[in-house]
């Protein structure tokens, strides 16, 4: 039974600057490793990342900042 921690949020962020699969993998590993991030899917073709996270520990902005910290440009879309 998955513990419901007050419901999860999902956000789609734009990610500029990726050119190959290894950039995608690096972001998925780094951001996916953050506590409170449940799932992340990065798309090279669409230049975005969809993240499912626990709103108690993250917000769309903090996730975009984390990606920017890695050296990619990222913005919240919806």
């Amino acid at each position: 039974m998955m513990a419901q921690s007050g419901g999860l949020c999902s956000v789609t962020l734009t990610v500029e600057g990726m050119t190959c699969g290894s950039c995608v993998q690096t972001i998925e590993q780094q951001i996916g490793g953050l506590s409170g991030v449940i799932h992340i899917e990065v798309s090279l073709e669409q230049k975005n990342a969809t993240v499912i996270f626990d709103p108690a520990s993250h917000s769309p902005e903090s996730l975009a900042d984390a990606i920017e910290d890695m050296g990619f440009e990222s913005d919240v879309t919806n």
Partner: peptide, 13 residues
């Protein structure tokens, strides 16, 4: 670094 994307990230940080 394996590609321009990676070196681009290093450049930005």
């Amino acid at each position: 670094m394996t590609c321009e994307g990676c070196s681009g990230a290093v450049t930005r940080v």
